[in-house]
Amino acid sequence: MTTLQTAQAGQTDATVPTASGRPGPGAAARAARRLVGGSTRLVLLVVAMFWLLPTVGLLLSSLRGPLDIGSSGWWTVLTKPAQLTLHNYTSLLDDPTITHSFLNSLLITVPATLLVVVVGSLAGYVFAWVEFPGRDWVFLLIVGLLVVPLQVALVPITSLFGDLGIFGSIVGVVLFHVAFGLPFAIFLLRNFFAGIPRELLEAARLDGAGELWLFVRVVVPLGGPAIASLGIFQFLWVWNDMLVALIFADADSAPLTVALQQQTRQFGTNIDVLSSGAFLSMIIPLVVFFAFQRQFVSGVMAGALK
Rank of each mutant, 00 (worst) to 15 (best):
T12C: 01
D13M: 07
A14T: 12
A14S: 11
S20N: 14
P23N: 12
A28H: 06
A32D: 08
L44N: 01
F50G: 12
F50V: 15
G57N: 05
L59Y: 09
R64I: 05
G70R: 09
S71I: 04
T79G: 11
K80I: 01
K80L: 02
P81F: 08
Q83G: 01
L84Y: 02
L84F: 04
T85V: 04
L93T: 05
P96R: 03
T97N: 12
L106G: 14
V110A: 08
T113M: 14
T113Y: 01
V118Q: 07
G120P: 07
F127N: 05
V130L: 11
F132L: 08
V138S: 10
I142E: 07
L146G: 02
P149N: 10
L154S: 03
V155C: 01
I157D: 06
S159E: 12
F161K: 03
I170Q: 11
V173I: 13
V173A: 09
V173F: 04
L175D: 03
H177N: 14
V178E: 03
A179T: 14
F180Y: 11
I186Q: 06
I186V: 15
F192I: 06
E202F: 02
L212I: 12
L222K: 04
G224P: 02
P225H: 03
L243M: 13
L243T: 14
A251R: 14
T257S: 15
Q261E: 08
R265T: 13
N270E: 14
F279D: 09
M282V: 08
F290D: 00
F292E: 07
Q295S: 14
A302R: 15
A304R: 14
